[in-house]
Simulated scan of single mutants.
Amino acid sequence: MISIATWNINSVRLRMPIVERFLKEEAPDVLCLQEIKCQEHQFPFKAFEALGYNHFAIHGQKGYHGVATVSRVPITEFSRHDWQANGEARHVGVELPDHDGMIVENVYIPAGGDEPDREKNPKFGQKLDFFERMTRWADTIDRPTLIVGDFNVAPLESDVWSHKQLLKVVSHTPIEVETMQRFKDAHGFTDIGREFIRDPDRYYSWWSYRSKDWKVNDRGRRLDHMWASPELAAQSTRHWLREDARDWEKPSDHIPLITEFDL
């Protein structure tokens, strides 16, 4: 068995106390973090090592974005793609040599700004182009691959608190859903979350900081995903999330997701 977790932590140094709590309570073998918001030399290596996480693949930058994969089992950095074509640190891939050569791709896809119009909002166009570059990459995959992270798209009606009210809101617009679906189809990825938490059951991973009481309003969206190659998806045995982490002290606006595989 091996367990993989993903979490947009929204500043790893600021939220290290809740990361430590999560690792003590869940102890995933591999943790993929997005939005670490620090350079590699600023990453809190010692705090992870104290918990038995001694293997790292860090792709960071000053103040923004950044992804990190930390592990209790050996990992080897496998890839770094600039799918936004602007030098931002949004991806790192690792190989797990002791687990059938499994590849874990950790990605932070751009949010896309506020206006779902490529002409009026260049950030939205960058987001769509990011997906298109990932789609071309997906055609080349020839290894058991798990891609995880903050995709910043909630594709299904049950992935958002109100399908009708969010149809014109970035993260749930038809063009984003269609663009992400093309990426998914390019390699035949399986949406692990929805294999275990079936549509139309409610499944959210993000609640805005703007909501004074996130639990009462429950205006969530499923922006975080774990997708597996067909052969790897067949080996998944369990998937769960820690919704209570949204209520921890100084929380991220995202929660962690975990999948277990029998390799």
Score class of each variant (00 low, 15 high):
Asp114Leu: 10
Ser162Glu: 06
Asp150Val: 03
Tyr203Asp: 14
Leu156Trp: 02
Gly101Val: 08
Val160Gly: 02
Leu166Ser: 07
Ala186Gly: 07
Trp83Pro: 06
Phe196Trp: 10
Phe183Gln: 02
Ala154Cys: 07
Leu167Arg: 15
Glu77Lys: 10
Lys120Met: 09
Val148Ser: 11
Met134Trp: 11
Gln84Cys: 13
His163Val: 02
His81Pro: 01
Phe189Gly: 05
Pro116Trp: 01
His99Ala: 04
Glu95Trp: 01
Trp137Phe: 10
His91Glu: 08
Lys184Asn: 11
Ser79Phe: 10
Ile147Ala: 08
Arg133Val: 01
Arg198Gln: 15
Asp114Ser: 06
Gly87Val: 05
Phe130Val: 09
Arg133Ile: 01
Arg133Lys: 04
Val104Trp: 00
Leu128Phe: 07
Phe131Lys: 11
Ile192Gly: 04
Asn86Gly: 15
Lys123Phe: 06
Phe130Met: 02
Val169Met: 00
Lys164Ile: 07
Glu132His: 13
Pro144Asp: 12
Glu77Ile: 02
Ile103Ala: 04
Ser79Thr: 12
Ala111Gln: 13
Gly188Ile: 12
Trp161Arg: 00
Ala85Trp: 09
Ser171Leu: 06
His172Thr: 06
Val94Ala: 01
Asp139Ala: 12
Glu176Lys: 08
Pro144Gly: 05
Glu176Ile: 08
Val148Pro: 08
Asn152His: 01
Pro200Phe: 07
Leu167Thr: 15
Met180Ser: 03
Leu96Val: 00
Leu167Glu: 15
His81Tyr: 09
Gly125Tyr: 04
Leu156Glu: 14
Gly149Ile: 07
Thr179Leu: 07
Glu195Arg: 13
Asp98Ser: 14
Gly113Lys: 05
Pro97Asn: 00
Leu156Met: 09
Tyr203Arg: 11
Glu119Ala: 15
His172Trp: 03
Phe130Leu: 05
Leu146Tyr: 12
Leu96Ser: 03
Arg182Tyr: 08
Val170Gly: 03
Asp191Gly: 00
Gly113His: 03
Ile192Tyr: 07
Gly112Gln: 08
